[in-house]
Design a protein around this nucleic acid. Structure first.
Lengths: 154, 154
DNA sequence: AGTAAAAACGAATAATTATTCATCCTTCAC
DNA sequence: GTGAAGGATGAATAATTATTCGTTTTTACT
């Protein structure tokens, strides 16, 4: 692994652990981890990693890495809640009128264990082959939902 | 509405329409829209709006919409094309299954001159009172569509 | 190993952005 | 109206970040 790559990994690690407000601070943080680099290099790394200074601190761009799948994207933005009823049925909630579009995208994903979906106006029923499949699908959907809201996993 | 608020709205509008790379450019953009403000004020507005310089251009943080209207947001992401048939009918195209949701949001906007809408699966008919109303609505919708794609106005 | 090309680097500096400070409005109480 | 308090503002400037330029290091190939 090139030294550039190592440094960039450490940068990502660093900004997720500490609050780093300036590139000068970043230089110091890296130095304390045994990596020497100039502010100029940090600036280039930041551009390469496409980091962003949001709210006074350097961070990884929030929405970008969420998903690159257009179907998932369509679901993510409009999934309000994911619940279940028994071992074989998930119940999804969307804004009014959106259930149809979300269900269609969901069908398009062809997730394992999903037997079928029915959409109302703001509600979708998802039938699953097993409780275990239900859990997997729920987790997947929840992660999509979270990603679109920039929530962190508790 | 305070002049601060107006300016900030215009800023959001501007960054969703054009590529703005520096606060100096922003000052120029606002001036061309009849708003005078110094770079200092822009800097303060950017902090207040929590904008972010990503990839060399100022943008609303991913996940937070460029438009602050949730209805508009729902339309923006899923409007593929806007056409017309005669003086009183607009024809909108959406991804499959999305027409209903978009039409509902469109109704919610209560745009002047819109008489009614009908949604199919991926198509919406919008009846307008006049050709002039049609133009206005088309322009509005086109600007929404563009904003969600970060296109620039040619 | 030897070498040409490409990539990475830091120092210096240019460019950009945030803050300070003095001033100007606006609002509100009297 | 007058005055005090709190925002909003711009000019100047401090602080931060991006780029240039000359050099060194790595890579790829023979």
């Amino acid at each position: 692994m090139s030294s550039v790559d190592t440094r960039r990994r450490v940068i990502l690690e660093a900004i997720s652990r500490q609050r780093i407000e300036t590139q000068k601070q970043m230089v110091a943080a890296l130095r304390s981890l045994g990596i020497d680099a100039s502010q100029a290099s940090i600036s280039r790394d930041i551009a390469a990693l496409r980091l962003v200074k949001a709210d006074g601190r350097w961070t990884a761009p929030a929405g970008l890495p969420a998903t690159s799948n257009p179907l998932e994207e369509r679901i993510a933005g409009r999934l309000l809640a994911v619940g279940s009823a028994g071992d074989h049925l998930l119940v999804l909630t969307t804004p009014p009128g959106e259930a149809g579009g979300v269900a269609l995208a969901l069908d398009g994903l062809e997730l394992d264990g999903v037997v079928g979906t029915v959409a109302g106006d703001d509600t979708i029923f998802v039938a699953t082959v097993s409780a275990e499949a239900g859990s997997r699908v729920t987790e997947k959907l929840e992660s999509l939902r979270r990603s679109s809201r920039n929530e962190s996993v508790p």
